[in-house]
Structures are given as C-alpha cells and as structure tokens.
C-alpha cells in the first residue's frame, strides 16, 4: 500500500535525469573524434584520452592530489581518533567548545579558509609549499574523520573495556585489542570520507596552490577558466569514472547511505 504512484515516478525520472545530465554530457563529449567540443555523433574516439598523456602537468597534479589526500587524511584520522575518544568518553570542562572548534571548518566558508591560509603561510614562509597544502587539508578534512569516529565511539559499551581491564589487560592493550577493533568501521569510513574530501577540494586550495605544487581539481579549474575544450572533458570523464568505481566499492563496503546518513547526523 505504501508504493509510489505514477506521478511520483515521473517526478523521480525527471529528477534523476537532472542529476545525471551534466555527468553524462561530460563523459559523452570526452569521446568526440573532433578537435572541438561536440557530441560524438559520428563515432567514438579515444584521442582526447590519449591527449592527456601529452600534458604531464595534469598527470603530475593527479599524483600530487593522491599524495596530498593520503597524507592529510591519515594525519587527520590520527588526530581525530584520540580526540573522539576524549569527547565520547570523558566529561571535562570545555568539552563542548573543543567539539565545536574541531567541527568549525565545516561552517567556515572555504574561500575564507583559503584567504586565511594564504595570509598565514605567506607570513610564516610556507606559501606555495606542499607542506602548506597538507596542513590546510588536515584542517578541512578533520571534521569528517572526527564525526564518523565519534559516531562509532559513542556506540561502544564501556563495560566491555572494563571487562578487559578486569581480566588483567593494561590500558594500552585494552585500546589495541578491544577499543580499536570496535571503532574500526568509523575509523576506516572516516579516513575514506576525509580522503575524498581532500581529493575534491578546490575552493581553498586554489588560493594556496602554486603552479609547481597544485592539485588536479585546481589545475582543471584554472584551465577551464581560460578555455573549455575536449581535453578537460576527457580528464573530467576519467575522474568521474574513477569516482564511480570508488563509489560502488564504498557502497559494497559500508553502504553509501550509512556513510552519508551517519555523517549527516551531528
């Protein structure tokens, strides 16, 4: 009895078309055999995918993006796990303030963060450096890592840890053998979400990247500002394809709705 009516399904179809339209168009244009932007009406060609190889700066940016995302999300999760345990386990003065501080990068517009980091790094002599990128990305991805680890640490019955301690485990052993395995799903999904957010970040990074150290989205963005040609389509299509694969893997591993709905609750 609780089924969607025909009207609802029509609405749904239009909605899905709206969501997919730009993504499909980008992928379609990437296969054009022509030298200009057009839909591949006269056959498909991979020439624009091959053309990516002639632009080493895009490949370099891609490699740097991967490193940046891996480093910043790993460091962020390393900071987030103990912080989440402190927030979930202990009642201490300033607990709420600390939580709000750690989640604040979600509320601060990324343009503002970009400007603040640009000013800050130029003052302390880090402007245009890879280290600067890593530091700034740690800040923007930490809230995502923290929220997912927090969600899984709130769920732990502390009596399980007390049981381990009563059986003679030291607090470090208890953490490694009991607590960590229990929060592991939160840690892994938190890391993944942090990685993706770092990899996709463009607004803040565009302020602090330099021509020699930049990320793929920033390079792409700056290129598009000057001209739009099938090359950006093929690069974007490659990105979309990669993301789709990651997405399906994530869906199998965690369930995409759990990953997002879990993080949508504060």
């Amino acid at each position: 009895m609780r089924r969607n009516g025909p009207l609802a399904l029509v609405f749904h179809a239009i909605f899905v078309a709206f969501i997919l339209a730009p993504i499909v168009v980008v992928c379609a244009v990437a296969f054009t055999p022509e030298g200009y932007l057009s839909l591949p009406t006269k056959g498909f060609s991979l020439r624009w995918f091959k053309a990516i190889l002639d632009y080493p700066e895009f490949l370099r940016a891609f490699r740097d993006s991967l490193w940046l995302a891996a480093l910043s999300s790993t460091i962020a999760i390393g900071l987030a796990v103990p912080a989440a345990l402190a927030i979930a386990r202990y009642r201490f003065i300033g607990r709420e303030a600390i939580t709000a501080l750690f989640l604040s990068p979600l509320m601060i517009p990324h343009v503002v963060l970009g400007i603040a980091f640009l000013r800050f790094f130029s003052q302390i002599g880090l402007s245009g450096s890879f280290l600067g990128l890593v530091l700034s990305h740690i800040i923007v991805v930490l809230p995502f890592a923290l929220r997912l680890v927090l969600a899984s640490s709130y769920g732990i019955d502390q009596r399980i840890e007390h049981a381990a301690i009563s059986l003679g485990a030291s607090s470090f052993v208890t953490f490694r053998r009991v607590t960590l395995p229990l929060i592991m799903p939160g840690v892994v999904s938190g890391w993944v979400l942090a990685f993706i957010n770092s990899f996709d970040e463009v607004t803040m990074t565009v302020f602090i990247a330099s021509p020699s150290t930049t990320t793929l989205p920033v390079r792409l963005f700056l290129y598009i500002q000057d001209n739009i040609d099938p090359l950006v389509s093929s690069i974007s299509a490659s990105l979309i394809l990669m993301t789709a694969v990651v997405m399906i893997v994530l869906d199998r591993l965690f369930g995409l709705d759990r990953l997002f709905l879990g993080s949508a609750k504060s």
Binding site: A21, P22, I23, V25, V26, D200, V202, V232, I240
Partner: peptide
Amino acid sequence: LISVVARTLGWALL
C-alpha cells in the same frame, strides 16, 4: 563524491 569542477563543467557544456 565527484569533483565539483567536473560536475560544473557538464553544465557549462549544456
């Protein structure tokens, strides 16, 4: 999860 640049590019093409 898809880069916002790639998604916006699609609209620019449309």
